[in-house]
């Protein structure tokens, strides 16, 4: 275990996760107003109609795949009778499909960002950095799946990357596991942690406000005047009855 290993596979993940968590908290406190998708549909929707759903469904699917692949130890799936081979076939097939959707969608989105005048003008430096790291992460990830299986040098990430990833969360990091992973996996993991580190400061924060509450709330929201900024005297006791509802 050398210093570089520790830096890359222990320090970087912890720093980046800490920035991720604290950053989101801080951004939410400091900048609720900036917390938005910054939709660009007003400028252009013909390309967005294809690009955005392809990218989003693809990446959400890939995300779910990562939760399964990284979070669930191989021994668990085997315990319920799913052979390593079956798992692999399903994972690669669905992963490739989702990855393909993501990459095509991302391609359309990037093309749109660059070529549609108003969209390009509305692209901040922050966006550019985010797109760079995001694209890198996705490309490294996809190349692992594709190259790994075509060229046949797939290292078994369920024995290396996944346990290492889980070990971070047990607070017993095992950086040595990453040594055995292929270069593709190493790059993918590195850029992913870089992405996590910048995540709270980009438009990607919109992911955490996915509006699931919409299913359960009543259609029309009523809100009363807020009493939190009590700068004026509240009602006198004998008047309370009259105004209590408000």
């Amino acid at each position: 275990m050398n210093t570089l290993e520790i830096l890359l596979w222990v320090v970087l993940p912890y720093v980046s996760l800490a920035v991720f968590v604290v950053g989101h908290y801080w951004r939410y406190r400091y900048d609720k107003f900036g917390w938005t998708t910054r939709s660009s549909q007003l400028y252009e929707s013909r390309l967005l109609r294809w690009g955005s759903p392809l990218f989003h469904f693809g990446i959400l699917f890939a995300l779910a795949g990562h939760v399964l692949g990284l979070g669930i130890p191989a021994s668990w799936t085997e315990a319920v009778g799913i052979s390593e081979h079956a798992y692999h076939v399903v994972a690669v097939a669905t992963g490739a499909l989702a990855g393909f959707g993501t990459i095509v969608g991302l391609g359309i989105l990037l093309y749109r960002r660059r070529t549609v005048g108003p969209v390009f003008s509305a692209t901040t430096r922050n966006d550019k950095l985010m797109y760079l790291v995001l694209t890198a992460t996705i490309l490294f990830g996809l190349s692992n799946t594709v190259l790994g299986n075509i060229i046949g040098q797939a290292s078994d990430y369920r024995e290396t990357v996944s346990p290492w990833f889980r070990s971070i969360f047990y607070f017993q990091p095992k950086p040595e596991l990453m040594d055995e992973a292929g270069l593709g996996y190493q790059l993918h993991a590195l850029s992913a942690f870089l992405l996590f580190a910048i995540w709270p400061f980009t438009r990607l924060v919109h992911v955490f406000s996915a509006p699931l509450g919409y299913f359960t709330r009543p259609y029309i929201v009523y809100r009363s005047r807020d009493v939190r900024l009590g700068s004026r005297a509240s009602a006198r006791g004998w008047d309370k009855e009259k105004v209590s509802r408000r």
């Binding site: 009363s224 005047r225 807020d226 009493v227 939190r228 900024l229 009590g230 700068s231 004026r232 005297a233 509240s234 009602a235 008047d239 105004v243 408000r246």
Partner: peptide, 13 residues
Amino acid sequence: TAHSEQGPGQEEL
């Protein structure tokens, strides 16, 4: 007019 007792500082909302 809005009632102060209904919500002081309403205009800041």
